[in-house]
Simulated scan of single mutants.
Amino acid sequence: MFTHVRRITALCALGAALAACGTVKAPRAAGGAPAEPTASPSSAPPSRPPTLTPGPGGLTPVFTNGPRTGGKTVALTFDADMTADQGPRAAAGEHFDNPELIAALRDLKVPATVFMTGRWAEQYPAEARSIGGDPLFEVANHSYSHYAFTADCYGLPTVSVDRMRSDVEQAYTSLRKAGVPHPMPYFRFPGGCYDRQSLRALSGLGVTAVQWDVVSGDAFATDADAVVRQVLEGVKPGSVVVMHCTRSAAPTTERVVRTIVPELRKRGFRFVKVSALISQTGAGR
């Protein structure tokens, strides 16, 4: 099950309002955002990952893109989706991981943010630990089992309101148990679907909800060139691109990355993590 765009005016307006009114603050957790290229690996955690200030009444803030005037930076994000009931399919040989994609990002020295479900981390703990321990990447929360936080979200099963907070907390527990030492205080709603009720349910967790402004279209795609065109046509300074780290249903993503990275660099873009874009929000949008 994969992330899609939810084109609902009310939600977009809410997300934009919250992101626009947010200011950068230092949360309780640890994390960071080295610029491209990253330094050599280190076991020491970066410090003070940036988050947005909560909205009115403590509502969970929403981040969609970085400043348009802060330089030609772009963040590639990858959703590592896996539902709780897909374990038997993984055991039968279906690949919900994509080590070749991660290898490509390392070869190209591209900082990236991986939004990982707790279930994915449990299925692939060695890979979760490897990604989480690599300073080139940052790992963030994509729920425990990729169930939707609103009704009518592309056919996804839903999490009840009273379970939303614990679902996010369970995902963080799974990430840490898998060996991700410093998961970031960022949360991506499954399917990108959220409303005021779900934002309120996560209030007080200290997370910033992270959306995107460029849809790669890699989910279920078989034409890598079409995905490449979509990304290159959509990227602007400060963009957040949503892609996927699941071979079985996003088989073109590695090829797409190997094409778009050199082309965007040729156009003057610099790749950063989501945390770096959030830290720039005080510079304007």
Rank of each mutant, 00 (worst) to 15 (best):
L101G: 01
D107V: 08
P111D: 06
M116L: 06
M116Y: 00
M116D: 06
T117F: 00
Q123R: 15
Q123D: 08
P125W: 03
E127H: 12
A128F: 02
R129Q: 14
S130R: 15
S130W: 06
G132E: 05
G133N: 14
P135I: 04
L136M: 14
A140K: 01
N141F: 00
N141A: 10
N141H: 04
S143Y: 01
S143I: 05
S143P: 12
A148F: 03
F149G: 09
D152R: 13
V159F: 00
S160K: 12
M164V: 05
R165H: 04
D167R: 07
V168P: 09
A171L: 01
T173E: 13
R176H: 07
A178D: 00
P181G: 10
M184S: 12
P185D: 02
R188N: 03
F189A: 15
G192P: 13
G192F: 00
C193R: 03
D195L: 10
S203V: 09
S203H: 10
G204Y: 00
V210C: 04
W212L: 11
V214K: 12
V214I: 10
V215N: 15
D218A: 08
A219N: 15
A219H: 05
A221T: 11
A221G: 05
T222Q: 10
V227S: 02
V228L: 08
V228G: 07
R229A: 08
R229E: 14
R229M: 06
S239G: 13
V242M: 09
V242G: 11
M243G: 04
